[in-house]
Structure formats: structure tokens, C-alpha cells
Design a binder for these strands. Structure first.
Lengths: 185, 185
DNA sequence: GTCTATACGAAGATAGAC
DNA sequence: GTCTATCTTCGTATAGAC
């Protein structure tokens, strides 16, 4: 088998998003990915924490990459970030959430710190993009935090209620807010 | 022992908020509350799901009760809802989150539905209060959803980063937004 | 209502052969 | 790199005595 490790990392990320931290067990990852049993501790000598950490990093990198491709306007940045979560909800038919959130509510210690670091990076990155788009730094940081927190919360609500309605409502308000930031009164 | 069941329900709610769904095991609940081992399945014949469901209901009721006491203005309602989460973060020194969120990201099936129902009730209740405060129904429902999702997301971020900063930023923006709703332009 | 004992399975992790 | 076997711990749940 080739590329076993990355396949396991991706599988772990998907399971985190769908079933939470306890749902992302080695048994489930192996079943989902078809990876060989014997190679778990070969690829992840430090066990589950190492696998989960790698999954968080993969999710984080993929997110930052897609954000980097956006046009530098507040509306485009906001829309692009929201689209990431909208796509996630659609692809998984409302059964998936955010892997970083899943770790954040169930982990303690180093793993929790790692999830926190991902949120920090996302916030800094989004704030940087908004600053490039002409938003004042302080306002950019505040809105970046709101954008992430409201999106994450809305994804949780939509998954729990099995309805896009909460996410769509929040999406609409955040988009309106981004227009306000783009043309300050 | 008297009042064993409510004590266990409260303990379960606290453990859900601090350690997630898997952290709210019977063993941990018994240790935390000092409840007698032998009475677990006496009080919860349907096992863990029944205990967790009761914990969600307790959290939901306590939340709705405190919201009902607020003055009927958009700013007071928003401030009161934010204060619930601010108090939670302070009391637990940033180690606790929301029990409903903890269940929402880790559960499937009936338990997930129950968490979704709590979010629905909260949304409807908040929207009702805002309507009483003079906000148009559609706008009230949208803002209620934003208020819940952003608060929940901000609590998650603050817990993961072990810093009040994300919550405080979001809190500031939501308060500003509530003023905008109170005096429409 | 509460006790002990116990069954059962899942999960994380390790050892050593191939 | 991958295999099997095994160990330990933990969590859920049941049975039956007191």
C-alpha cells in the first residue's frame, strides 16, 4: 500500500467531523480507509494523539490554502469562508461538522492546545486578508473572530437540527455585516 | 441519600461541559457527585442516553428561565444571553463549554436530535423576546440564531485558546449589532 | 434504593514474527 | 511495513442479594 499515512490522516479528519473525537478510533479509521492494521503504530508512534494532531493540521492547511485564493475584498473573503462550511454541510448532507471543533470540546491538554492554535492561525490569517482588503487592523481582527465563531456555531446548529436554516440565516447576516465593513459609515 | 437523581443530572451536565460526551461517564459522575453506585440504573433505567438527555433538559430549562427575567429590549436581551456564557467561562476559569454543543458534535441518533431540539427552543424563545422588544419577527429570528451560534462558537474558541479574547471580541460586536436592531436605520 | 459481582465489548497500546 | 496476538483499562449494562 502506498500513501497509507495521508489516507489515514484524511480518514481521521472525516471521522472527527462526523462522529467526534471518540468516533475517530483506529478501528474506524482502518475500516474507512482500508489501511493495514499492522501499520498504525508504524505511522503514528505516539498513538492516537499524533494521528488527531496530523488531522487537525491537514484541515487547517487545506482551509488556509483555499482562503489564500480569494479576492481581497471583505465581501469576497467572507463569502469564501462561508462557502467552505456550506460545501461541507452539503457534501455530507448535514452529517458533518468541523474537526477542530470536535477536538476542542472533547480534548484536554496538548490536543486542546493544538486545536486552539488552529483557531489562532485562522483568525490571524483572516484578519490579515481583511487588512489587505482595506479594513482597519482592530476591526479586521474582531470581524475575523466573529466570522469563525458564528460559522462554527451555525454548522453545529445545522447539523444538530438537520437543517440548513441556522447556517443560512447566519450566513446572510455575516454577509450583510461584511458589506458594512467594506463601506464604513 | 436524597435527591440522588438531580445531583447526578447536574454532575453530568457539568462533565459534559468540561470533558465532552465521553467524559461524562457513569464512573465520573459518581465520583463527582458521590452518588451511590448501585442506584445508577435505578434512576436511569435506559442508561447513559437517559442521563444525558436529562442533563440537556436541565441546562435548557435553566437557560430559558434566566432569559425570561430580562428586560424586553434588544440590548438587554443580547447582554443577558452573553452574560450566561461569560459567567460560565469565568466560573470554570475557561475550562468549561456548553453541554449542548458537546452532545451536538459527538452524538448521533436520538441524542443528537434532542440537542437540536434544545437549540430550536432557545432560538424560538430568544426570537420571541426580541419580538416583544419591538423587533420584526423575521429579523428577530435571524438575530437570535446569530446570537446563539456566535456565542457558542466564541465559547469554544475561548476554551481552546484558554483566553477570553475571542469571546470578548464577539461579545462586543454582537452588542453593537443589537443596538443597530434596536434603532433601525 | 442500594449493594456486589460480573459479563461484554471497545479502545489504546505493546511485543515479536514475517 | 505489515502481520497476529495479547494486555490493560475503561465504559456500559445486567443479575441477584440485601
Amino acid at each position: 500500500m502506498k500513501d497509507v499515512r495521508p489516507r489515514m490522516v484524511n480518514g481521521a479528519a472525516r471521522l472527527l467531523a462526523q462522529k467526534g473525537l471518540q468516533g475517530a478510533s483506529f478501528a474506524e479509521v482502518l475500516e474507512l480507509t482500508g489501511a493495514p492494521r499492522g501499520s498504525v503504530y508504524h505511522h503514528f508512534p505516539n498513538g492516537k494523539d499524533e494521528m488527531v494532531t496530523a488531522a487537525l493540521d491537514a484541515v487547517s492547511e487545506a482551509t488556509l490554502k483555499r482562503l489564500g485564493e480569494l479576492e481581497r475584498t471583505p465581501v469576497a473573503i467572507t463569502g469564501g469562508f462561508l462557502a467552505l462550511w456550506s460545501d461541507l454541510l452539503d457534501r455530507a448532507k448535514l452529517t458533518a461538522g468541523c474537526a477542530v471543533v470536535a477536538v476542542s470540546v472533547a480534548a484536554t491538554g496538548d490536543l486542546l492546545d493544538h486545536a486552539g492554535a488552529v483557531f489562532s492561525r485562522w483568525t490571524g490569517h483572516l484578519a490579515g486578508l481583511l487588512t489587505e482588503a482595506g479594513v482597519a487592523p482592530a476591526e479586521a481582527a474582531d470581524f475575523a473572530t466573529l466570522l469563525i465563531s458564528a460559522s462554527e456555531g451555525a454548522v453545529i446548529m445545522s447539523r444538530a437540527q438537520r437543517s440548513r436554516e441556522p447556517f443560512d440565516r447566519v450566513s446572510r447576516l455575516l454577509t450583510a455585516e461584511s458589506r458594512r465593513i467594506a463601506s464604513p459609515s
